[in-house]
Design a binder for these strands. Sequence first.
DNA 1: CTAAATATGTTCCGATCGGTACAGAACGAA
DNA 2: TTCGTTCTGTACCGATCGGAACATATTTAG
Lengths: 202, 202
Amino acid sequence: MAGDRRTTVGRPREFETDEALERAMRVFWAQGYDGTNLTDLTTAMGITRTSLYAAFGNKEALFRKALQRYSAGPGSYGSWALQEPTAREVAAAFLRGGVETTTRPDRPAGCLSVQGALAVAPQNRPVADAVSDWRDDARARLTERFALARDEGDLPASSDPALLARYLMVVSTGMAVQAAGGAGREELHRVVDAALAAWPPA
Amino acid sequence: MAGDRRTTVGRPREFETDEALERAMRVFWAQGYDGTNLTDLTTAMGITRTSLYAAFGNKEALFRKALQRYSAGPGSYGSWALQEPTAREVAAAFLRGGVETTTRPDRPAGCLSVQGALAVAPQNRPVADAVSDWRDDARARLTERFALARDEGDLPASSDPALLARYLMVVSTGMAVQAAGGAGREELHRVVDAALAAWPPA
DNA sequence: CTAAATATGTTCCGATCGGTACAGAACGAA
DNA sequence: TTCGTTCTGTACCGATCGGAACATATTTAG
């Protein structure tokens, strides 16, 4: 919305919007919304306050754009997992993808949706709600996928798609918390193995 | 440390330390550490800034005392669960207790260790570390308990106590995140059922 | 009664917060 | 050139933060 060049009139921008947004996303990812101040952002992005406001609106709008970028980038494993052929493979891909994303050494630990805004100041409640809604949306999409799987016989007729989706979200967010606390990927992969033992047979 | 009466000399305190700490704990629980300011605390506790500092030290010391109180009060289900006779019952009690604690209508949703300090400002890093250490300690105690269960034949000899403990922590913290986002206890109890399906047979 | 000790309420401090005013710099159009 | 437009950098704003200064009130010890 605010980051697009309208015309070619005026002084050209001296930084790349994409690169700046990528850097902002990583700062939010590592430090959370409340834990990040404008100086942290402008330093990481290599631009001034004024440029930040002109290009992205304000701190909250920048965070929302960073969240979108996270969803399309590091968090895209959620979408990929939905394309796996069987429910068990969807579940496995979802959990494995979460482990990989939250434990890469070249990226902040944990999940942006957990790190970013679980605990925020009351005046920043809309930010927390946005992230919570994002998790709810992911859960809804998993639910749809598992309902389809049940119709296809990929899951037992007695299984509960909404329950399975919530279970996956619980394990996923729980692992994100663990990763933020320093858990390694080998340990978390074993957790995934344990979690999948609860999965209904095909 | 700072809350104990040394002697009976001087003007007596006009508030109950226990009651004030209980109220402070609930504010931190609901709003997180960074999201709570001194005015929130003094209003809820019914005391002045000066009294707060005299009785509890400072904001961080008060939070640590609130965390201790949480561990001994609402979070005590973790200790109780360890006393169950079998590993499966320990696991069930741990998860059920977590659900009950994080979804009671008369208390803040979620877990203080998740709500309180997952995302904090860099200068408040010690606070985040304290909560992370608290979770690690809980996991260590679960590990010990499951090692004992394995020695007693309560768990298969091939089972991994550390893995089972981490799995429980993952599910538990994941459910806390869900509860903070509005998930109801019925839904979470079904998640516990699903999670326990992964548990090794006795 | 006096002195020491502790608690209280008011007031203020320096630092930091997110956000902006303003002037100058770099462009295209005329 | 000159103007309108857009970006950049500095300097600053009011609000809020955690924390402390200070005077006052209330207790016990002597």
